[in-house]
């Protein structure tokens, strides 16, 4: 089963390799990982999408917590949360498909951020499912390049996750 985990870590030298090394060393999966500093400059927040059964997930959470550089670990999977991912998509367009491409961009509330006579570069944010959706529709036109950020997540409601 897929799990989305937020990890607050010390924003310091080597912390990313501590986390990724833990996953590779113990044979855990990483589907995506995104990281950036929080409001506090000495704290970073990672969002990791991983998969495994309950026993593996318990180990992942515990092993993450065990790292000295880890401040807090939250598995959002059973919680109410919002996930958003950014994707940049370069799609080939011929004369007959340019209008259709724009319609799809419009339906998905995406944006065209760069144009050439034969391509559109599209920016889209949304839940990972939405990104998969637009990719599905654009695929027949010929996607030249996709860059996805991996999802970042935040819990619903008034409470925030802090160190």
């Amino acid at each position: 089963m897929k799990h989305t985990i937020s990890v607050l870590v010390e924003n310091e030298f080597g912390v990313l390799s501590r986390i990724s090394g833990l996953f590779s060393g113990r044979g855990f999966n990483i589907e995506s990982l995104s990281v950036a500093p929080t409001l506090e400059p000495n704290t970073s927040r990672m969002t990791i999408v991983t998969s495994g059964d309950d026993r593996i997930l318990e180990q992942i959470t515990k092993q993450l917590n065990k790292l000295i550089s880890t401040i807090k670990v939250v598995d959002f999977t059973s919680k109410d949360f919002i996930a958003r991912e950014l994707a940049l998509i370069k799609v080939s367009t011929e004369a007959e498909t340019r209008a259709e491409a724009l319609r799809i961009v419009d339906i998905f509330r995406a944006k065209v951020i760069d144009v050439t006579p034969r391509t559109y570069t599209i920016e889209i944010t949304g839940a990972p499912g939405k990104i998969n959706g637009i990719l599905e529709l654009l695929r027949p036109m010929g996607i030249k390049e996709v860059v996805r950020s991996g999802p970042v997540v935040i819990g619903r409601g008034a409470k925030g996750v802090t160190g």
Binding site: G14, G21, S69
Partner: peptide, 16 residues
């Protein structure tokens, strides 16, 4: 050596 010993130390430090 910090990179090499990361998986076999409880923690390690490079003092810059």
């Amino acid at each position: 050596i910090c990179g090499i010993t990361r998986p076999c130390t409880k923690h390690n430090f490079l003092v810059k």
